[in-house]
């Protein structure tokens, strides 16, 4: 059944994503911060490992996007849900800046925040509750591109 295949695809994608976050060690906040810590470059204390995560990830996804352009629709839906927003507005820049502060303070971006549940480190729930509260508050303030159309799948 198409519906089941659709959900199974989401499950496979999520599982691969979670595996990738662990294997790359993006799930380790200290590892992330030691990568972001460019100030440690002169002293030799910089860990550049995570620079090697984004390149392969983008390359694989880039190929998928090119394959997608030759198709009318994805396998289990009637159309690609291409983001429509094109303008670079204040919310995009302001939101990214706020996220940058949060990421630099804790070393946890949203994917690892969730996959950290697999380890249940101390204080994780505080970060998660705050992140969800922030996300909800952000949705009231309005999101960049403000296309926020009702997503009908």
């Amino acid at each position: 059944m198409a519906r089941l295949s659709y959900l199974a695809t989401a499950g496979v994608s999520g599982a691969l994503f979670g595996a990738g976050l662990y294997v790359s060690q993006m799930v380790d906040p200290l590892k992330v911060l030691r990568f972001i810590d460019f100030g440690a470059i002169p002293s030799g204390g910089w860990d550049p490992s995570l620079a090697f995560v984004i390149g392969p990830a983008i390359l694989v996804m880039f190929i998928a996007v090119q394959i997608g352009k030759r198709r009318q629709a994805p396998v289990f839906d009637t159309s690609f849900h291409e983001p429509q927003a094109k303008t670079i507005d204040a919310r995009l820049i302001g939101g990214a800046a706020l996220f940058g502060i949060g990421w630099g303070m804790a070393g946890i971006c949203p994917g690892p925040a969730l996959s950290l549940i697999a380890f249940l480190p101390d204080n994780l729930w505080i970060f998660l509750v705050a992140m969800f509260a922030g996300s909800f508050a952000g949705s009231l303030l309005g999101t960049s591109g403000s296309k926020t159309t009702v997503t009908v799948q």
Binding site: S5, Y6, T9, A10, V12, S13, G14, A15, L16, F17, A19, G20, L21, Y22, V23, S24, Q25, M26, S49, L50, A51, F52, V53, I54, G55, P56, A57, I58, L59, V60, M61, I63, A64, V65, I67, G68, R71, A73, P74, V75, F76, D77, S79, F80, H81, P83
Partner: peptide, 23 residues
Amino acid sequence: SAALGGSLIGLAAAVLWLGNGRI
């Protein structure tokens, strides 16, 4: 391990895009 993990993340994104058309 960083590059391998990154490839898995890219594969996850590719599966969701080509399968369900979602980011």
